[in-house]
Design a protein around this nucleic acid. Sequence first.
RNA 1: GGAGGGAUGACAGAGCGGACGAAUGUACCGGUCUUGAAAACCGGCGUGGGCUUGCCCACCGUGGGUUCAAAUCCCACUCCCUCCGCCA
Length: 435
Amino acid sequence: MIDLAQLRREPEFVKAALARRGVSSATMDEIVRLDVEHRRLLQEAERLRAEVKDLSRQVGDARRAKDTDAADRLTAQSRVLGDQEREATEATETVATELREQLLMIPNLPSPDAPDGLDEDANVELRRWWVGMDEGIGFPTYGEHQRVAHWEIGAELGILDLESGVKIAGSMFPLFRGAGARLLRSLGYFALDRHTGDYEEIRPPSFALTETMMSTGHLPKSADDMYAIERDDLWAIPTAEVPLTSMRRGEILDEAELPIRLTAQTACFRREAGSAGRDTRGLLRVHEFDKVELFAYCTPEQAEAAHADILSRAEGLLQSLGLTYRVLDLCCGDLGTSSARTLDLEVFSPGVDRWLEVSSVSWFRDFQARRANVRYRTSDGSTALVHTVNGSALAWARIWAALVETYRQPDGSVVLPDVLAPYMGDQTRIRPKAS
RNA sequence: GGAGGGAUGACAGAGCGGACGAAUGUACCGGUCUUGAAAACCGGCGUGGGCUUGCCCACCGUGGGUUCAAAUCCCACUCCCUCCGCCA
């Protein structure tokens, strides 16, 4: 949620910042109008309530003094004012609700550093990395044996069974077999082991309350992108960011605790409602995948370093796996609702000949903290909102796809990166079943 | 799923219709005393909101209701504890 006090203080600044991501000035004017109206009504309601309270005290005094006449007179007076107060409060609530609903739809102010632009074409590529780059070797050229889509490789090796997934849950729910399934498990262990020294390992619930979804900004705006279990008023989490942000919801943290750094592996569920018909083949876009997330609650001063740390860890994993990737600086229009600045990592997948988004490293400033009401006690004793930052360390499915395509050999087998050997039972190569 | 008990400030714990935003204790912060520390004593010590910055308003698990007046009474829900049943 944006800061309403800031909107009052410097409306033109806020409007200009939001205009960079396509929020109209008229929308903000309406919010300002509601805010003014709300405060006007609130003052009137509170004035009446103060009067009723005062009269009630006088009734008590009169009763104790056995002055029945005065008590009856004051009671009648208070009753009349009470009715007025109820009306005024109701009017205040109506406007407050309207204001809250509008405010919840407003995205975060983009960072001044975020590039201009209204769609993904305006994203800025910051850098690329590939194996051997540091030694002066040029961007890799991929052989014909690597120009095979992962779903073909998966079928060939018997490690990906999309048909069974469809049978069980419908399209875009993949099923992995044998070494393919173990490869996923290995990626999870590998990513967690890399970070659990500095980030506390968390295993959160996979479902969340509406309030929890509100806190990160996934609701009310993105309801169609998520799976709902209406009977129990629960939502399937689209990322571990959701439970981790609410883990300390409503708390006032000790400044000495910060930054609080957490990591969690969870399943992530996405309906992909807006993308029907796109990327339907293989693992490019799926409804369920696993992901290791890195997350931190921190002070505003710590946020930049925390963001950079998560980015370098996410990059470090891709480098260890020997995957080619690039870093994109998302333009204002392509930022997620809650984010002020996001850097995306995309791996190059030679078989499908595309860059695949595998990580989003975002800085939310106090946007989510305001919704989740997560604060910390500063050294001078006052409270302030924390900043939240997070990023995917490793998101499967797409990583899996890029791995098998990148490491496919001329004989059709897939060689596994050395770093996974301890997790693969020292298996270093996946061979076709027949051979 | 059934029966009972409970939910109050950082923690413990009182209050069970009328000056209660809330006694008391602990913890914490400042001061006195002390070479220093402890003890003792004194003072401070919830969060948010509104505006005329001194005042007002809200919050005692959540949401409704009764009343001139609700932490306190009534209803529903949630969560925690104990017991019974079922179960990975």
